[in-house]
């Protein structure tokens, strides 16, 4: 990397007490409520949770992509290479986004500009951040397309997005995100909108690019299977909070939080054949109503009165932390 390494002790990105609220007509929606995590250089972190658990909003907050208003970052810091991303001006952020932190999105059909040639979109980060000459940028763009496995890159770079299939577009998105060789790639459910076979190709592609370039990846997904195959560490989010965090193996093998436990149980492929499908009873809480204590409590089979008290994510093993009062007390064994 071009930047000198400051201290080895510092993680690549350290997020502390992030709170992002949406001030809507129906009240304040606490989309992200006191989230802290960190990611090391070259590491792959998965963030899992159901729709509305705040996993995407967390990452959008980091890059200043929350629509403001109604969104507002209420508190927290996100230290990336000695810079607090949350305190950056737009101009300062613009020097980081697309250059050192890149992002790919859920829906490749809508994430590319239909009015611009692939070429112009693909090389834009080079033009913005590296002041590359246009001709050289196009050469790099063609190479980038080849790297993500697009045939006839030199011709196809002149196409418009609608001439590409969904999987191809996601490849273009990846090529575009990686063209400046970023330190961190944030992938917001990049395979959700794709066919299963294409999903696997995209995951393999990201894995390969990561191995070649040594960048860190934050992979957001609601698909536990995808995350298991890709990430070293996993954060499980529920109702805007991280409820369990740890190495992938312990998250999957020995869940401590009842929500995570329930999630694992509801993966049909991991259950014995013929067993009745497990579903979590009830519904996620309305985030516009303040929740004291554990947000999962109304749906939790282990809930007791003590769960109404505020609960924090606490370390309970090597690299593992859980936000469940009863688990922290050792009262439940899953």
């Amino acid at each position: 990397m071009c930047e000198p390494q400051k201290t080895d002790a510092m993680p690549l990105l350290q997020v502390k007490n992030l709170r992002t609220y949406f001030h809507t007509r129906n009240g304040v929606v606490r989309a992200v409520d006191d989230v802290s995590f960190e990611i090391e250089k070259g590491e792959t972190l998965g963030i899992v949770g159901e729709s509305g658990s705040g996993k995407s909003v967390t990452c959008y907050s980091l890059l200043g992509l929350i629509p403001q208003p109604p969104g507002r970052i209420e508190s927290g810091e996100a230290i990336f290479d000695n810079t607090d991303l949350l305190k950056c001006s737009t101009a300062e952020l613009n020097r980081i986004r697309g250059k050192r932190i890149a992002m790919i999105f859920q829906d490749p059909m809508t994430s590319l500009n239909p009015y611009m040639r692939i070429e112009d979109q693909l090389i834009e980060p080079l033009l913005i951040h590296e002041k590359t000459g246009r001709q050289r940028a196009v050469e790099l763009g063609v190479q980038a397309l080849k790297d993500v496995g697009i045939q006839d890159a030199a011709q196809r770079i002149r196409s418009y997005p609608h001439e590409f299939s969904g999987g191809m577009r996601q490849r273009v998105m990846i090529a575009m995100a990686l063209i400046t060789k970023p330190d961190l790639l944030i992938a917001d459910e990049p395979t959700t909108a794709l066919d299963v076979t294409v999903q696997a190709q995209i995951i393999e592609l990201v894995k390969r690019m990561q191995a070649e370039r040594g960048m860190a990846v934050i992979w957001i997904s609601h698909d536990l299977g995808v995350v298991a195959g890709l990430c070293q560490r996993v954060n499980v989010m529920y109702a805007g909070r991280v409820v369990e965090s740890g190495p992938t193996t312990s998250i999957y093998r020995s869940p401590k939080h009842p929500y995570n436990h329930a999630l694992q149980k509801s993966i049909p492929a991991l259950q014995p054949k013929g067993a009745e499908l497990y579903t979590i009873a009830g519904m996620p809480p309305d985030l516009s109503k303040p929740v004291t204590g554990c947000a999962f409590m109304p749906r939790c089979e282990f809930a007791q009165d003590i769960c109404r008290a505020p609960v924090e994510l606490k370390k309970d093993g090597p690299g593992h932390a859980t936000a469940c009062t009863r688990a922290q007390r050792g009262e439940i064994n899953l």
Binding site: E50, L224, S266, P268, L277
Partner: peptide, 11 residues
């Protein structure tokens, strides 16, 4: 590949 868990839909 495993399937995603059935996630309850609020709507």
């Amino acid at each position: 590949m495993t399937q995603s868990p059935p996630i309850t839909n609020a709507a």
